[in-house]
Write a protein that binds this DNA or RNA. Structure first.
Lengths: 108, 108
DNA sequence: CATATTTTATTCAGTATTGTAAGTAATATA
DNA sequence: TATATTACTTACAATACTGAATAAAATATG
């Protein structure tokens, strides 16, 4: 069996792909990351992670149609697999389960 | 500035320290991890992460009192710092913010 | 048509950080 | 002195991140 673990940054990227729904390609993900976190991220970091996630079965991709903008290579659009949705649910559920058991945090 | 990032496993360990409250030392954390996740974890993995988290300011530690059991070196007990609580809140908040924007997940 | 420019994909190499396993050392009580 | 219990160290593998470079494909413009 391969490695099926999900790193912290990988998880954020999966969530961003989900948020962008039908428009998740590298440049858009960089922009959405900036918008949602206020931090900058290198596009190669995104590429590296996108391909790793695809290899691990968390993402699928296909080339998009040509747009109405100036030019450019066609976008590679990424989509969450059912497996990714399941993994996101599981890790979120574990964290919530733990958080609810921490007095000072659960009270807040 | 130092490294202030929080890995996925580091985050779980912080949460376990919070859950164990006043009894968070390596062996107890291993057991709690097993109890909460159903998975096994190596005690040295826990040690390595605990010390790293302490260096980064997420945890504080002190040696505990001798117990009423057979023997053994005194336990080193770990506690969340306010900084750790803040970091946990922030990352949880970002994830929830993103999750709420994913149609198929937020509907579930 | 030919060339320039824009936009994006893709690869590569390298460094830093995080995660795991194996093994050693220390200290308490029996 | 033996044994139980835990701390601690070391080494390595996996993941996260960066920067540079190249390639490809689309439209604009002369």
């Amino acid at each position: 069996m391969e490695n099926l673990k999900l790193g912290n940054f990988e998880e954020i990227v999966l969530l961003l792909v989900g948020v962008l729904y039908n428009g998740a390609y590298s440049v858009a993900i960089v922009e959405e990351y900036k918008k949602q976190t206020g931090k900058s991220i290198n596009i190669s970091a995104i590429h590296t992670v996108l391909y790793r996630l695809e290899e691990k079965g968390f993402l699928e991709s296909k080339l998009g149609e040509a747009g109405d903008f100036r030019g450019g290579k066609r976008k590679r659009l990424f989509y969450l697999t059912p497996y990714a949705r399941k993994a996101l649910e599981e890790i979120a559920s574990l964290r919530e389960q733990l958080r609810s058991q921490i007095p000072a945090i659960s009270i807040q």
